[in-house]
Write a protein that binds this DNA or RNA. Structure first.
Length: 553
RNA sequence: GCGCCCGUAGCUCAGUGGAUAGAGCAGGUGCCUUCUAAGCACUUGGUCGCAGGUUCGAUCCCUGCCGGGCGCGCCA
Protein backbone atom coordinates (compact mmCIF):
# COMPACT_ATOMS: atom_id res chain seq x y z
CA UNK A 1 0.00 0.00 0.00
CA UNK A 2 1.32 3.41 -0.95
CA UNK A 3 0.99 6.47 1.30
CA UNK A 4 -1.59 7.82 -1.15
CA UNK A 5 -3.73 4.74 -0.68
CA UNK A 6 -3.31 4.95 3.07
CA UNK A 7 -4.41 8.56 2.97
CA UNK A 8 -7.68 7.43 1.39
CA UNK A 9 -8.05 4.76 4.04
CA UNK A 10 -7.65 7.38 6.78
CA UNK A 11 -10.22 9.59 5.10
CA UNK A 12 -12.57 6.64 4.95
CA UNK A 13 -12.00 6.10 8.65
CA UNK A 14 -13.02 9.69 9.35
CA UNK A 15 -16.24 9.29 7.39
CA UNK A 16 -16.81 6.02 9.21
CA UNK A 17 -16.51 7.70 12.58
CA UNK A 18 -18.79 10.50 11.42
CA UNK A 19 -21.39 8.04 10.17
CA UNK A 20 -21.21 6.18 13.45
CA UNK A 21 -21.71 9.45 15.31
CA UNK A 22 -18.49 9.26 17.28
CA UNK A 23 -17.11 12.29 15.49
CA UNK A 24 -18.84 15.46 14.32
CA UNK A 25 -16.61 16.98 11.65
CA UNK A 26 -16.38 17.47 7.93
CA UNK A 27 -14.15 14.98 6.17
CA UNK A 28 -10.99 16.93 5.29
CA UNK A 29 -9.60 16.91 1.77
CA UNK A 30 -5.99 17.12 2.73
CA UNK A 31 -4.98 14.34 5.07
CA UNK A 32 -1.31 14.32 5.94
CA UNK A 33 0.20 10.86 6.12
CA UNK A 34 3.91 10.94 6.72
CA UNK A 35 6.80 8.63 7.25
CA UNK A 36 7.82 9.04 10.88
CA UNK A 37 11.49 9.68 11.58
CA UNK A 38 11.41 7.27 14.47
CA UNK A 39 10.84 3.71 13.37
CA UNK A 40 9.13 2.90 16.66
CA UNK A 41 6.30 5.14 15.45
CA UNK A 42 5.10 2.62 12.89
CA UNK A 43 5.21 2.61 9.12
CA UNK A 44 3.20 5.80 8.76
CA UNK A 45 1.81 8.46 11.03
CA UNK A 46 -0.92 11.04 10.70
CA UNK A 47 -1.69 14.19 12.68
CA UNK A 48 -5.31 14.17 11.54
CA UNK A 49 -6.71 13.82 15.07
CA UNK A 50 -4.93 16.95 16.29
CA UNK A 51 -6.14 18.89 13.32
CA UNK A 52 -9.75 17.79 13.78
CA UNK A 53 -9.83 18.21 17.55
CA UNK A 54 -10.83 21.86 17.52
CA UNK A 55 -13.83 21.51 15.20
CA UNK A 56 -14.82 18.21 16.78
CA UNK A 57 -14.84 19.89 20.16
CA UNK A 58 -13.13 17.00 21.91
CA UNK A 59 -9.50 16.42 22.93
CA UNK A 60 -7.06 15.29 20.20
CA UNK A 61 -6.43 11.97 21.87
CA UNK A 62 -10.15 11.24 22.00
CA UNK A 63 -10.41 11.94 18.27
CA UNK A 64 -7.42 9.69 17.76
CA UNK A 65 -9.00 6.88 19.74
CA UNK A 66 -12.17 7.09 17.67
CA UNK A 67 -10.21 6.97 14.42
CA UNK A 68 -7.92 4.20 15.66
CA UNK A 69 -11.04 2.12 16.26
CA UNK A 70 -12.07 2.60 12.63
CA UNK A 71 -8.61 1.97 11.22
CA UNK A 72 -8.08 -1.26 13.14
CA UNK A 73 -11.01 -2.74 11.23
CA UNK A 74 -9.03 -2.37 7.99
CA UNK A 75 -7.46 -5.62 6.81
CA UNK A 76 -4.43 -3.83 5.35
CA UNK A 77 -3.58 -2.33 8.73
CA UNK A 78 -1.93 -4.45 11.39
CA UNK A 79 -1.77 -2.02 14.27
CA UNK A 80 -2.72 1.52 15.23
CA UNK A 81 -1.28 3.33 18.22
CA UNK A 82 -2.33 6.64 19.66
CA UNK A 83 0.82 8.45 20.71
CA UNK A 84 2.00 11.74 22.11
CA UNK A 85 -0.43 14.62 21.79
CA UNK A 86 -2.64 12.62 19.42
CA UNK A 87 -0.60 11.11 16.61
CA UNK A 88 -1.93 7.98 14.98
CA UNK A 89 0.93 5.60 14.38
CA UNK A 90 0.02 3.02 11.79
CA UNK A 91 1.71 -0.29 11.11
CA UNK A 92 0.72 -1.94 7.87
CA UNK A 93 -0.21 -5.58 7.53
CA UNK A 94 2.41 -8.11 6.49
CA UNK A 95 3.17 -7.72 2.81
CA UNK A 96 1.30 -4.44 2.40
CA UNK A 97 4.59 -2.55 1.99
CA UNK A 98 5.88 -5.09 -0.49
CA UNK A 99 3.20 -4.17 -2.99
CA UNK A 100 4.95 -0.82 -3.37
CA UNK A 101 7.85 -2.55 -5.12
CA UNK A 102 5.49 -4.23 -7.54
CA UNK A 103 3.71 -0.97 -8.27
CA UNK A 104 6.97 0.89 -8.89
CA UNK A 105 8.37 -1.72 -11.25
CA UNK A 106 5.09 -2.10 -13.09
CA UNK A 107 4.80 1.65 -13.63
CA UNK A 108 8.40 1.84 -14.83
CA UNK A 109 9.31 5.23 -16.21
CA UNK A 110 5.88 6.49 -15.21
CA UNK A 111 6.45 5.73 -11.53
CA UNK A 112 6.30 9.02 -9.71
CA UNK A 113 4.47 10.85 -12.45
CA UNK A 114 1.16 12.46 -11.56
CA UNK A 115 -1.49 14.47 -13.37
CA UNK A 116 -1.45 17.25 -10.78
CA UNK A 117 -0.79 19.86 -13.49
CA UNK A 118 -2.52 18.12 -16.38
CA UNK A 119 -3.92 20.56 -18.92
CA UNK A 120 -1.65 23.43 -17.81
CA UNK A 121 0.35 25.09 -20.55
CA UNK A 122 3.44 26.63 -18.98
CA UNK A 123 6.05 28.80 -20.64
CA UNK A 124 9.29 28.48 -18.71
CA UNK A 125 11.95 31.04 -19.50
CA UNK A 126 15.45 30.57 -18.15
CA UNK A 127 19.12 31.33 -18.85
CA UNK A 128 18.33 34.16 -21.36
CA UNK A 129 21.88 35.51 -21.11
CA UNK A 130 22.93 38.22 -23.54
CA UNK A 131 24.08 36.83 -26.89
CA UNK A 132 27.34 38.71 -26.63
CA UNK A 133 29.39 35.80 -25.40
CA UNK A 134 29.39 32.10 -24.61
CA UNK A 135 27.40 30.55 -21.75
CA UNK A 136 29.07 31.50 -18.48
CA UNK A 137 29.25 29.69 -15.18
CA UNK A 138 26.64 32.02 -13.72
CA UNK A 139 24.13 30.96 -16.36
CA UNK A 140 25.03 27.32 -15.99
CA UNK A 141 23.19 27.14 -12.70
CA UNK A 142 19.97 28.25 -14.37
CA UNK A 143 20.49 25.84 -17.24
CA UNK A 144 20.68 22.95 -14.77
CA UNK A 145 17.96 24.14 -12.42
CA UNK A 146 15.61 25.44 -15.11
CA UNK A 147 15.77 22.29 -17.13
CA UNK A 148 15.15 20.22 -13.99
CA UNK A 149 12.14 22.37 -13.12
CA UNK A 150 10.80 21.87 -16.64
CA UNK A 151 11.17 18.11 -16.26
CA UNK A 152 9.50 18.24 -12.85
CA UNK A 153 6.53 20.18 -14.19
CA UNK A 154 6.23 17.67 -17.02
CA UNK A 155 6.34 14.84 -14.50
CA UNK A 156 3.32 16.50 -12.91
CA UNK A 157 1.53 16.43 -16.23
CA UNK A 158 2.07 20.02 -17.39
CA UNK A 159 2.72 20.95 -21.00
CA UNK A 160 5.97 22.89 -20.73
CA UNK A 161 7.68 25.03 -23.35
CA UNK A 162 11.27 25.98 -22.59
CA UNK A 163 12.20 29.42 -23.79
CA UNK A 164 15.35 31.52 -24.12
CA UNK A 165 14.93 35.26 -24.61
CA UNK A 166 17.63 36.59 -26.89
CA UNK A 167 18.44 40.21 -26.09
CA UNK A 168 19.59 40.98 -29.59
CA UNK A 169 18.68 44.66 -29.50
CA UNK A 170 20.11 47.66 -27.77
CA UNK A 171 23.39 49.20 -26.80
CA UNK A 172 25.24 46.06 -25.73
CA UNK A 173 24.76 44.59 -29.20
CA UNK A 174 26.26 47.74 -30.66
CA UNK A 175 29.28 47.35 -28.38
CA UNK A 176 29.50 43.67 -29.28
CA UNK A 177 29.41 44.47 -33.02
CA UNK A 178 32.09 47.15 -32.67
CA UNK A 179 34.26 44.70 -30.76
CA UNK A 180 33.93 42.18 -33.60
CA UNK A 181 34.68 44.86 -36.15
CA UNK A 182 37.79 45.98 -34.28
CA UNK A 183 39.01 42.39 -34.06
CA UNK A 184 38.42 41.92 -37.79
CA UNK A 185 40.37 45.07 -38.58
CA UNK A 186 43.16 44.10 -36.21
CA UNK A 187 42.47 47.17 -34.10
CA UNK A 188 42.36 47.15 -30.29
CA UNK A 189 38.94 46.32 -28.85
CA UNK A 190 37.13 49.48 -27.66
CA UNK A 191 37.37 50.08 -23.94
CA UNK A 192 33.64 49.59 -23.43
CA UNK A 193 33.68 46.52 -25.71
CA UNK A 194 33.98 42.80 -25.10
CA UNK A 195 37.54 41.69 -24.44
CA UNK A 196 37.21 37.91 -24.41
CA UNK A 197 39.25 35.51 -26.51
CA UNK A 198 36.07 34.30 -28.17
CA UNK A 199 35.66 37.61 -30.04
CA UNK A 200 38.39 36.96 -32.61
CA UNK A 201 37.05 33.63 -33.98
CA UNK A 202 33.51 35.02 -34.16
CA UNK A 203 34.81 38.02 -36.09
CA UNK A 204 36.61 35.70 -38.48
CA UNK A 205 33.45 33.65 -38.99
CA UNK A 206 31.49 36.76 -39.89
CA UNK A 207 34.26 37.87 -42.26
CA UNK A 208 34.39 34.48 -43.97
CA UNK A 209 30.63 34.55 -44.36
CA UNK A 210 30.50 38.06 -45.81
CA UNK A 211 32.76 38.74 -48.79
CA UNK A 212 33.83 42.35 -49.10
CA UNK A 213 32.58 43.20 -45.64
CA UNK A 214 35.51 45.43 -44.76
CA UNK A 215 34.95 47.47 -47.92
CA UNK A 216 31.47 48.46 -46.83
CA UNK A 217 30.72 51.78 -45.16
CA UNK A 218 31.34 51.87 -41.42
CA UNK A 219 27.68 51.72 -40.34
CA UNK A 220 26.87 48.82 -42.67
CA UNK A 221 29.84 46.90 -41.34
CA UNK A 222 28.62 47.31 -37.78
CA UNK A 223 25.13 46.20 -38.80
CA UNK A 224 26.50 43.05 -40.41
CA UNK A 225 28.73 42.27 -37.43
CA UNK A 226 25.74 42.75 -35.15
CA UNK A 227 23.41 40.53 -37.13
CA UNK A 228 25.82 37.74 -38.00
CA UNK A 229 27.79 37.97 -34.77
CA UNK A 230 24.63 37.48 -32.71
CA UNK A 231 23.52 34.64 -34.98
CA UNK A 232 26.86 32.91 -34.50
CA UNK A 233 26.75 33.47 -30.76
CA UNK A 234 23.19 32.17 -30.44
CA UNK A 235 24.13 29.08 -32.43
CA UNK A 236 27.06 28.56 -30.08
CA UNK A 237 24.91 29.06 -26.98
CA UNK A 238 22.26 26.71 -28.29
CA UNK A 239 24.79 23.99 -29.09
CA UNK A 240 26.41 24.37 -25.67
CA UNK A 241 23.09 24.07 -23.86
CA UNK A 242 22.01 21.09 -25.96
CA UNK A 243 25.31 19.43 -25.12
CA UNK A 244 24.53 20.09 -21.49
CA UNK A 245 21.22 18.30 -21.89
CA UNK A 246 19.20 21.50 -21.62
CA UNK A 247 16.98 21.67 -24.65
CA UNK A 248 15.09 24.86 -25.48
CA UNK A 249 11.97 24.81 -27.63
CA UNK A 250 12.22 28.46 -28.56
CA UNK A 251 14.93 31.08 -28.86
CA UNK A 252 12.88 34.24 -28.92
CA UNK A 253 14.41 37.32 -30.50
CA UNK A 254 13.89 40.67 -28.80
CA UNK A 255 14.60 42.37 -32.09
CA UNK A 256 11.71 40.53 -33.72
CA UNK A 257 9.41 42.33 -31.29
CA UNK A 258 10.74 45.69 -32.49
CA UNK A 259 10.50 44.73 -36.13
CA UNK A 260 7.04 43.18 -36.04
CA UNK A 261 5.40 46.20 -34.47
CA UNK A 262 4.66 44.21 -31.33
CA UNK A 263 5.97 47.06 -29.17
CA UNK A 264 3.51 49.54 -30.62
CA UNK A 265 0.72 47.04 -30.19
CA UNK A 266 1.70 46.40 -26.59
CA UNK A 267 1.81 50.13 -25.96
CA UNK A 268 -1.67 50.48 -27.46
CA UNK A 269 -2.97 47.66 -25.28
CA UNK A 270 -1.56 49.26 -22.13
CA UNK A 271 -2.96 52.61 -23.21
CA UNK A 272 -6.41 51.09 -23.62
CA UNK A 273 -6.17 49.76 -20.09
CA UNK A 274 -5.56 53.34 -19.01
CA UNK A 275 -2.18 53.07 -17.32
CA UNK A 276 0.01 54.97 -19.78
CA UNK A 277 0.92 58.65 -19.34
CA UNK A 278 3.46 61.17 -20.59
CA UNK A 279 5.94 63.17 -18.57
CA UNK A 280 9.16 64.99 -19.42
CA UNK A 281 8.80 64.00 -23.04
CA UNK A 282 8.77 60.30 -22.24
CA UNK A 283 5.98 57.72 -22.23
CA UNK A 284 5.45 55.97 -18.89
CA UNK A 285 3.55 53.01 -17.49
CA UNK A 286 2.00 53.75 -14.12
CA UNK A 287 3.30 50.59 -12.47
CA UNK A 288 2.98 52.16 -9.02
CA UNK A 289 -0.76 51.48 -9.35
CA UNK A 290 0.17 47.82 -8.98
CA UNK A 291 2.71 47.87 -6.21
CA UNK A 292 5.89 48.82 -8.04
CA UNK A 293 8.35 51.18 -6.35
CA UNK A 294 8.28 53.73 -9.12
CA UNK A 295 6.69 54.25 -12.51
CA UNK A 296 8.60 52.93 -15.52
CA UNK A 297 9.48 54.51 -18.82
CA UNK A 298 8.24 52.74 -21.95
CA UNK A 299 9.46 55.21 -24.57
CA UNK A 300 12.39 57.48 -23.82
CA UNK A 301 12.37 61.21 -24.58
CA UNK A 302 14.54 60.47 -27.62
CA UNK A 303 11.78 58.26 -29.02
CA UNK A 304 13.55 54.96 -28.38
CA UNK A 305 11.58 52.23 -26.61
CA UNK A 306 13.09 50.89 -23.37
CA UNK A 307 14.01 47.33 -22.58
CA UNK A 308 10.97 47.31 -20.34
CA UNK A 309 8.72 48.15 -23.30
CA UNK A 310 10.04 45.06 -25.04
CA UNK A 311 9.27 43.06 -21.89
CA UNK A 312 5.67 44.19 -22.06
CA UNK A 313 5.42 43.13 -25.68
CA UNK A 314 7.17 39.87 -24.91
CA UNK A 315 4.81 39.00 -22.08
CA UNK A 316 1.76 39.75 -24.21
CA UNK A 317 3.23 37.64 -26.98
CA UNK A 318 3.63 34.68 -24.65
CA UNK A 319 0.05 35.00 -23.53
CA UNK A 320 -1.11 35.31 -27.13
CA UNK A 321 0.66 32.06 -27.85
CA UNK A 322 -1.73 30.41 -25.43
CA UNK A 323 0.27 29.84 -22.27
CA UNK A 324 -1.73 29.70 -19.05
CA UNK A 325 1.28 30.59 -16.99
CA UNK A 326 4.47 32.48 -17.68
CA UNK A 327 7.30 31.36 -15.43
CA UNK A 328 10.62 33.20 -15.48
CA UNK A 329 13.74 32.07 -13.69
CA UNK A 330 16.03 34.99 -12.84
CA UNK A 331 19.25 35.50 -10.96
CA UNK A 332 19.29 37.61 -7.81
CA UNK A 333 20.99 40.39 -9.76
CA UNK A 334 17.62 40.86 -11.49
CA UNK A 335 15.46 40.73 -8.39
CA UNK A 336 14.63 44.40 -8.82
CA UNK A 337 12.67 43.31 -11.86
CA UNK A 338 9.92 41.47 -10.04
CA UNK A 339 7.89 44.47 -9.01
CA UNK A 340 7.68 46.08 -12.44
CA UNK A 341 7.02 42.74 -14.15
CA UNK A 342 4.09 41.95 -11.88
CA UNK A 343 2.82 45.44 -12.44
CA UNK A 344 2.99 45.16 -16.21
CA UNK A 345 1.01 41.93 -16.08
CA UNK A 346 -1.64 43.63 -13.97
CA UNK A 347 -1.61 46.71 -16.18
CA UNK A 348 -2.25 44.49 -19.17
CA UNK A 349 -5.38 43.22 -17.46
CA UNK A 350 -4.03 39.86 -16.32
CA UNK A 351 -3.72 38.52 -12.81
CA UNK A 352 -0.07 38.36 -11.73
CA UNK A 353 -0.87 35.72 -9.14
CA UNK A 354 -2.13 33.24 -11.72
CA UNK A 355 -0.45 34.18 -14.99
CA UNK A 356 3.03 35.10 -13.84
CA UNK A 357 5.61 33.52 -11.63
CA UNK A 358 9.13 34.83 -11.20
CA UNK A 359 11.58 32.59 -9.44
CA UNK A 360 14.66 34.33 -8.11
CA UNK A 361 17.77 32.26 -7.61
CA UNK A 362 20.91 33.32 -5.78
CA UNK A 363 24.18 33.79 -7.60
CA UNK A 364 27.15 31.47 -7.75
CA UNK A 365 30.70 32.16 -6.63
CA UNK A 366 33.59 30.68 -8.48
CA UNK A 367 36.11 29.27 -6.04
CA UNK A 368 39.61 28.19 -6.83
CA UNK A 369 41.92 26.85 -4.12
CA UNK A 370 39.43 28.04 -1.57
CA UNK A 371 39.67 31.62 -2.88
CA UNK A 372 36.78 33.42 -4.59
CA UNK A 373 37.46 34.35 -8.22
CA UNK A 374 35.77 37.34 -9.79
CA UNK A 375 33.98 36.88 -13.10
CA UNK A 376 33.22 39.57 -15.64
CA UNK A 377 32.01 38.93 -19.16
CA UNK A 378 33.05 42.33 -20.40
CA UNK A 379 36.59 41.94 -19.09
CA UNK A 380 36.77 38.47 -20.54
CA UNK A 381 37.99 36.75 -17.38
CA UNK A 382 35.02 34.44 -16.94
CA UNK A 383 34.70 30.73 -16.74
CA UNK A 384 32.33 28.98 -19.07
CA UNK A 385 29.80 26.19 -18.87
CA UNK A 386 32.06 24.25 -21.19
CA UNK A 387 35.04 24.75 -18.86
CA UNK A 388 33.10 23.33 -15.94
CA UNK A 389 31.85 20.37 -17.95
CA UNK A 390 35.35 19.66 -19.16
CA UNK A 391 36.63 19.71 -15.60
CA UNK A 392 33.95 17.68 -13.84
CA UNK A 393 31.65 16.15 -16.47
CA UNK A 394 28.01 16.83 -17.21
CA UNK A 395 26.57 14.55 -14.56
CA UNK A 396 28.61 15.96 -11.69
CA UNK A 397 28.03 19.53 -12.85
CA UNK A 398 24.29 19.18 -13.27
CA UNK A 399 23.85 17.26 -10.07
CA UNK A 400 25.91 19.64 -7.94
CA UNK A 401 24.02 22.63 -9.34
CA UNK A 402 20.62 21.01 -8.93
CA UNK A 403 21.12 19.66 -5.40
CA UNK A 404 21.39 23.10 -3.81
CA UNK A 405 18.36 25.19 -2.98
CA UNK A 406 18.16 28.14 -5.37
CA UNK A 407 17.75 30.38 -2.31
CA UNK A 408 21.30 29.53 -1.36
CA UNK A 409 24.40 31.06 -2.86
CA UNK A 410 26.76 28.33 -3.91
CA UNK A 411 30.47 28.03 -4.45
CA UNK A 412 31.50 26.32 -7.64
CA UNK A 413 34.68 24.44 -6.91
CA UNK A 414 35.73 22.33 -9.88
CA UNK A 415 38.34 20.50 -7.85
CA UNK A 416 35.76 19.48 -5.27
CA UNK A 417 33.12 18.54 -7.83
CA UNK A 418 35.48 16.30 -9.76
CA UNK A 419 36.44 14.22 -6.72
CA UNK A 420 35.20 10.70 -6.95
CA UNK A 421 34.43 10.54 -3.27
CA UNK A 422 31.44 11.20 -1.06
CA UNK A 423 32.16 14.91 -1.27
CA UNK A 424 30.33 14.22 -4.49
CA UNK A 425 26.89 12.84 -3.69
CA UNK A 426 26.26 12.26 -7.39
CA UNK A 427 28.59 9.28 -7.31
CA UNK A 428 26.96 7.92 -4.17
CA UNK A 429 23.60 7.94 -5.93
CA UNK A 430 24.91 6.68 -9.25
CA UNK A 431 26.86 3.96 -7.49
CA UNK A 432 23.67 2.62 -5.93
CA UNK A 433 22.14 2.36 -9.40
CA UNK A 434 25.23 0.67 -10.83
CA UNK A 435 25.27 -1.74 -7.90
CA UNK A 436 21.65 -2.75 -8.48
CA UNK A 437 22.30 -3.13 -12.19
CA UNK A 438 25.11 -5.51 -11.32
CA UNK A 439 22.88 -7.59 -9.04
CA UNK A 440 20.24 -7.80 -11.75
CA UNK A 441 22.87 -8.79 -14.33
CA UNK A 442 24.17 -11.53 -12.05
CA UNK A 443 20.62 -12.70 -11.45
CA UNK A 444 20.06 -13.00 -15.19
CA UNK A 445 23.22 -15.06 -15.50
CA UNK A 446 21.84 -17.42 -12.88
CA UNK A 447 18.67 -17.67 -14.93
CA UNK A 448 16.69 -15.71 -12.37
CA UNK A 449 14.13 -13.12 -13.42
CA UNK A 450 11.41 -11.06 -11.80
CA UNK A 451 8.65 -13.13 -13.38
CA UNK A 452 5.07 -11.96 -13.36
CA UNK A 453 3.92 -9.29 -10.96
CA UNK A 454 1.13 -11.52 -9.74
CA UNK A 455 3.51 -14.30 -8.79
CA UNK A 456 5.64 -12.32 -6.35
CA UNK A 457 5.26 -13.47 -2.79
CA UNK A 458 5.56 -10.13 -1.02
CA UNK A 459 5.09 -11.81 2.33
CA UNK A 460 8.72 -12.88 1.93
CA UNK A 461 9.63 -9.29 2.66
CA UNK A 462 9.68 -7.97 6.18
CA UNK A 463 13.28 -7.35 7.16
CA UNK A 464 13.63 -3.96 8.80
CA UNK A 465 15.98 -2.79 6.04
CA UNK A 466 13.54 -4.00 3.40
CA UNK A 467 10.71 -2.10 5.01
CA UNK A 468 12.84 1.05 5.21
CA UNK A 469 13.59 0.74 1.53
CA UNK A 470 10.00 0.06 0.52
CA UNK A 471 8.78 3.05 2.51
CA UNK A 472 11.38 5.22 0.80
CA UNK A 473 10.32 3.97 -2.63
CA UNK A 474 6.72 4.74 -1.72
CA UNK A 475 7.65 8.35 -0.99
CA UNK A 476 8.88 9.08 -4.50
CA UNK A 477 5.60 10.26 -6.08
CA UNK A 478 5.05 12.70 -3.25
CA UNK A 479 8.63 13.94 -3.46
CA UNK A 480 8.18 14.67 -7.16
CA UNK A 481 4.86 16.39 -6.63
CA UNK A 482 6.15 18.56 -3.82
CA UNK A 483 9.33 19.41 -5.71
CA UNK A 484 7.28 20.42 -8.75
CA UNK A 485 4.91 22.56 -6.69
CA UNK A 486 7.76 24.31 -4.94
CA UNK A 487 9.91 24.52 -8.10
CA UNK A 488 12.58 22.87 -5.99
CA UNK A 489 14.49 20.18 -7.85
CA UNK A 490 17.03 20.02 -5.04
CA UNK A 491 14.45 18.09 -3.07
CA UNK A 492 14.64 15.30 -5.60
CA UNK A 493 18.42 15.16 -5.26
CA UNK A 494 18.31 15.08 -1.48
CA UNK A 495 15.69 12.36 -1.59
CA UNK A 496 17.80 10.29 -3.99
CA UNK A 497 20.75 10.55 -1.63
CA UNK A 498 18.59 9.25 1.17
CA UNK A 499 17.22 6.48 -1.04
CA UNK A 500 20.70 5.45 -2.14
CA UNK A 501 21.81 5.22 1.49
CA UNK A 502 18.74 3.16 2.35
CA UNK A 503 19.54 0.81 -0.51
CA UNK A 504 23.19 0.44 0.50
CA UNK A 505 22.09 -0.52 4.01
CA UNK A 506 19.57 -3.00 2.61
CA UNK A 507 22.28 -4.46 0.37
CA UNK A 508 24.57 -4.78 3.34
CA UNK A 509 22.19 -6.84 5.44
CA UNK A 510 19.85 -8.52 2.96
CA UNK A 511 21.56 -10.93 0.62
CA UNK A 512 19.64 -10.99 -2.65
CA UNK A 513 21.16 -13.77 -4.75
CA UNK A 514 21.86 -17.31 -3.55
CA UNK A 515 25.49 -17.94 -2.67
CA UNK A 516 27.49 -21.09 -3.06
CA UNK A 517 25.20 -24.08 -3.34
CA UNK A 518 22.15 -22.25 -2.03
CA UNK A 519 18.99 -22.44 -4.09
CA UNK A 520 17.00 -19.41 -5.20
CA UNK A 521 13.59 -19.25 -3.57
CA UNK A 522 10.58 -16.95 -3.37
CA UNK A 523 12.55 -14.58 -1.14
CA UNK A 524 15.16 -14.20 -3.87
CA UNK A 525 12.46 -13.18 -6.31
CA UNK A 526 10.82 -10.80 -3.86
CA UNK A 527 14.16 -9.12 -3.18
CA UNK A 528 14.87 -8.84 -6.88
CA UNK A 529 11.64 -6.87 -7.15
CA UNK A 530 12.80 -4.58 -4.38
CA UNK A 531 16.08 -4.05 -6.23
CA UNK A 532 14.35 -3.38 -9.53
CA UNK A 533 11.95 -0.95 -7.85
CA UNK A 534 14.85 0.96 -6.32
CA UNK A 535 16.60 1.10 -9.69
CA UNK A 536 13.40 2.43 -11.25
CA UNK A 537 13.18 5.26 -8.73
CA UNK A 538 16.89 6.11 -8.96
CA UNK A 539 16.63 6.18 -12.72
CA UNK A 540 13.46 8.27 -12.79
CA UNK A 541 14.79 10.68 -10.19
CA UNK A 542 18.15 11.16 -11.87
CA UNK A 543 16.40 11.67 -15.19
CA UNK A 544 14.44 14.56 -13.70
CA UNK A 545 17.77 16.14 -12.82
CA UNK A 546 19.16 15.43 -16.26
CA UNK A 547 21.74 13.07 -14.80
CA UNK A 548 22.63 9.66 -16.22
CA UNK A 549 21.87 6.49 -14.27
CA UNK A 550 24.83 4.25 -15.12
CA UNK A 551 24.64 0.46 -15.28
CA UNK A 552 28.31 0.13 -14.41
CA UNK A 553 30.88 2.28 -12.67
C1' G B 1 17.24 54.25 3.60
C1' C B 2 13.76 50.62 1.07
C1' G B 3 12.94 45.55 -1.23
C1' C B 4 14.36 40.22 -1.90
C1' C B 5 17.55 35.97 -0.19
C1' C B 6 20.61 33.76 3.57
C1' G B 7 22.24 32.81 9.06
C1' U B 8 21.01 25.18 11.62
C1' A B 9 27.27 20.41 14.11
C1' G B 10 34.45 22.31 13.17
C1' C B 11 33.22 22.78 7.27
C1' U B 12 29.37 22.44 3.12
C1' C B 13 24.31 22.17 3.53
C1' A B 14 18.89 19.40 4.05
C1' G B 15 14.60 20.13 6.92
C1' U B 16 6.28 22.66 2.53
C1' G B 17 3.46 24.04 11.95
C1' G B 18 4.56 18.07 14.59
C1' A B 19 7.24 13.43 18.37
C1' U B 20 14.38 12.75 20.67
C1' A B 21 16.54 18.77 14.55
C1' G B 22 19.32 15.30 10.06
C1' A B 23 23.12 14.10 5.86
C1' G B 24 27.90 14.39 3.73
C1' C B 25 32.83 15.94 4.76
C1' A B 26 36.51 16.35 8.58
C1' G B 27 38.31 13.33 13.48
C1' G B 28 38.28 8.16 15.94
C1' U B 29 37.33 2.49 15.83
C1' G B 30 35.89 -1.80 13.13
C1' C B 31 33.88 -4.86 8.50
C1' C B 32 35.80 -7.61 1.94
C1' U B 33 37.70 -16.18 0.07
C1' U B 34 30.88 -15.64 -2.41
C1' C B 35 25.56 -10.20 -5.31
C1' U B 36 30.35 -3.52 -7.20
C1' A B 37 34.39 -1.40 -0.27
C1' A B 38 32.66 4.84 -5.16
C1' G B 39 29.90 0.48 0.31
C1' C B 40 28.44 -0.66 5.60
C1' A B 41 28.53 -0.47 11.23
C1' C B 42 29.84 2.12 15.68
C1' U B 43 31.63 6.95 17.59
C1' U B 44 32.71 12.55 18.60
C1' G B 45 29.97 17.07 17.59
C1' G B 46 23.91 21.80 18.37
C1' U B 47 21.91 28.63 22.95
C1' C B 48 18.52 26.12 14.91
C1' G B 49 21.94 34.52 14.75
C1' C B 50 19.39 37.44 19.12
C1' A B 51 14.67 39.11 21.54
C1' G B 52 9.55 39.08 21.69
C1' G B 53 4.70 37.27 19.72
C1' U B 54 0.88 33.81 17.40
C1' U B 55 -0.87 28.10 19.29
C1' C B 56 -2.08 22.21 21.83
C1' G B 57 2.86 22.43 19.42
C1' A B 58 7.70 27.08 16.03
C1' U B 59 14.15 25.73 12.79
C1' C B 60 9.44 26.75 9.90
C1' C B 61 4.42 31.83 10.60
C1' C B 62 4.44 37.45 12.48
C1' U B 63 7.32 41.91 14.58
C1' G B 64 11.95 44.17 15.95
C1' C B 65 17.21 43.90 16.09
C1' C B 66 22.36 41.94 14.59
C1' G B 67 25.48 39.90 10.61
C1' G B 68 26.36 38.54 5.14
C1' G B 69 24.80 38.60 -0.36
C1' C B 70 21.95 40.96 -4.30
C1' G B 71 18.92 44.87 -6.15
C1' C B 72 16.89 49.84 -6.16
C1' G B 73 18.61 54.13 -14.27
C1' C B 74 14.63 57.82 -19.74
C1' C B 75 21.28 50.83 -18.93
C1' A B 76 20.41 46.20 -20.85
Amino acid sequence: MTPEQLRDVVRTAVSGAVARGTLAVEVPEDVVVERPKNRAHGDYATNIAMRLAKTAGIPPRAVAEALAEELRAQPSIAAVDVAGPGFLNITLAEGALGRIAVQAVSAGEDYGRTDALAGQRINLEFVSANPTGPVTLGSTRWAAVGDAIARLLEASGADVSREYYVNDAGAQIERFARSLQAAALGRPIPEDGYQGDYIEPVAQRVLADTPGLLDMPEQEQVAVFAEKGVAAMVADIRATLEGFGAHFDTFFSERSLHESGALEKALATLREQGHVFERDGAVWLRTTDFGDDKDRVLVKADGEPTYFAADCAYYLDKRRRGFDKVVILLGADHSGYVGRYKALVAAAGDDPATHLEIQIGQLVNLVRNGEPVRMSKRAGNFVLLTDLVEAVGIDAARYALARASVDQQIDIDAELWSRKTNDNPVFYVQYAHARISSVLRNAAELGLSLGEAGDVDVSQLGHERENDLLRAIGEFPRVLTAAAELRAPHRVARYLEELAGTYHRFYDSCRVLPRGDEVAGPQTTARLWVCAATATVLHNGLTVLGVHAPERM
